[in-house]
């Protein structure tokens, strides 16, 4: 499999580490135990297209949101995480 890192270009799978479902958002501090439980444990594992977190540890150390079809391994989009790359000047 090959992933096109937005910073480094097309690179092979061995440079990346997979984390899993990118959909869940970390709940706010006061969201309560049930919300955090859902965030930590209830991950989707879709047979088809899903958004996933991948880490380009063998390259620029960016976290990427990769949209991948888990049946065909076709990758339709790769986006840097919100905090990846050079810091945004306007916060």
């Amino acid at each position: 499999m090959r992933i096109t890192c937005p910073f480094c270009g097309e690179r092979e799978l061995g440079e990346f580490t997979y984390l899993g479902d990118a959909k869940p958002q970390r709940p706010a501090a006061d969201a309560g135990e049930d919300a955090v439980y859902d965030y930590v444990y209830l991950r989707d594992n879709i047979a088809g297209v899903m958004d996933e977190n991948w880490y380009h540890g063998g390259g620029c150390r960016s976290w990427l949101k990769v949209t991948r079809n888990t049946l065909t391994h076709e990758i339709s989009s790769v986006e840097p995480a919100a905090g990846a790359g050079a810091r945004q000047v306007a916060k």
Binding site: Y55, G57, R61, W63, P80, A82, G83, A84, K91
Partner: peptide
């Protein structure tokens, strides 16, 4: 050493992108 670096980068880039930290 390696996993913590990866974890901290995840925290910085994905969980807390608004923090000004490198």
């Amino acid at each position: 050493a390696g996993p913590v670096m990866q974890h901290l980068e995840f925290c910085r880039q994905v969980l807390f992108p608004k923090l000004d930290v490198q």
